[in-house]
Each structure stands twice: as C-alpha cells, then as structure tokens.
Simulated assay, not measured.
Amino acid sequence: MADALRVESADDRMIVTLTRPEKKNAIDQRMIDDLHAVCDDLEATPRTLIISGSGGVFAAGADIAQLRARRADDARRGINTQAFRRVRALPMPVIAAIDGWALGGGAELAYAADIRIGTPSLRIGNPETGLGIIAAAGATWRLPEIVGHARATEMLLTGRILEAEEALAWGLVASLHEPEDLLAAAHAIADRIAANDALATRHTKTALRASADEHPHVELELQAELFESPEKERRMTAFLARKSTR
C-alpha cells in the first residue's frame, strides 16, 4: 500500500505532501497514522513543517466512507483531533500551503498550522453539519481564534465555503500566490524563520499558544531563559558591530 504522505526532509524543515489524489487527498486512517509518524520525527528533531496537497487540492475533507462507519467510541477517541493537536503543538512553526479545496478535516488540518497561505483557487470551510456531524477536530475552537467568533459562527453553522479573496480578507490566509509559486512562497517563509534563532522562535510559538491566564508570566520566564542564551549574546554583539560601521 502506498504511503498517504510524501515526506522530504532538510536540516531546517520538512515538507509533507498529502498524496491521495484519487480521493482528492481525503484524510483517512492511513494518513492520520502517517501524520503521527511525522510528528514523532519533528518532536524529536524540531524543524519547520510545510504541509501541502497534491493534484491541485489540499484536502477535500475526511474520508466519508470511513466516517460513515464510525460510531460513538470512535468519536470519543478523537482520531483526527489527536493528530491535529500534535501538529499544532509541534515545537517549530507549521506552514500550510493551500491550493484548491480544504474542506472539513482538510480545513481543520489547515487551522492547526501557524501560518496559512493559498492560491486563487482556494476554497476552505466546514460543511460537516450538512453530513449530520459537527466539525470536531479543532474548528470550533481554532477558527474563532483565527477569524473571530462572529465569522467562525457563521461559517460553522451555515457550512459556508470561503473563496480565496474572502479567506484573505478575513485573515484566514496570510497571502495568495499562483499555484506554481505556492511552494516557493512557503519556502521563503521557512527561510525567514530559519534565519532567526531557533530557540527564540520556539519560545515565541510557546507564548502564542499560551492561555490568557498564563500571560505575562509565560513570556517573562521564556525571556529569562533567552537572556542567558549564548546565541542572544552572539546575535546582539553582531548587530551592534554592524551598526557601529554604518
């Protein structure tokens, strides 16, 4: 059986492509298992993750044939939820490069990313209520954080699918690029991340994920660690040296 993901690794990033083109990259159990393996790797060796889809589609949803067969115990196991929580919690940033459809579970995987970019053909949303279920793998709490409660409520209760320009205007994606330029744009973001201090980047992501009750204590503790970092000393010394020669 072919892998559900194509994985390419470099020193500072991993590129993961969803590869079920015959099913429009619908997320099935095999893909979830492969995502867990990716998370195992990135938790052990933190790098930026770029996620994209093959065949002009990000992911057209969860695999409906498998969903139809699932029962209450399967729902309580949170099959997709647990994988997407691990993606969201990865130490380094996650970039979703979205071309075409990102629906249902595909949209929820995109919501788990830290940065989302797309193409003009992007279509994203959660039509789950039309299938007799809810968006239970992150949309009900992540989408309001991204686009605001009112807009998320409209999307989730109506099953509205946003087109690319709407998604950009709502802040659901940060930028739009032609399909042939999408991965290059994702790599350009990863390049900017790689130019920064990895520990400072990880700590920034930790602070961004913290709850309101944890602020400002969490930032102060993370900053305290960075203030003792040799990399902070090196980078600031280099900055001051460059400034003195201008």
Rank of each mutant, 00 (worst) to 15 (best):
A83W: 05
M92P: 03
K232Q: 14
T81C: 00
A113E: 08
A190K: 06
V57K: 00
I32K: 02
E108S: 13
S52V: 15
N126T: 14
G125K: 08
A113D: 09
G100F: 06
E165C: 00
E180P: 00
D3E: 04
I134E: 09
L122Q: 09
E108G: 10
E128T: 13
T45F: 02
G159H: 09
E219S: 09
A59V: 12
R234A: 14
R88V: 11
R116E: 11
A174F: 01
A224F: 02
T48P: 01
A2Y: 07
A198L: 05
A185T: 11
R151P: 04
P230T: 14
R20G: 11
A167Y: 05
H149S: 04
A164V: 06
T19A: 06
G104C: 11
V173Y: 03
L172W: 05
D181V: 11
L162S: 14
A10P: 00
N196P: 00
T206W: 02
L103H: 07
A112M: 10
A89M: 13
E8G: 01
R160A: 11
E145F: 00
A152I: 11
A83R: 06
A185K: 01
A113H: 06
L220I: 15
D63M: 09
P144I: 09
T81D: 11
H217S: 13
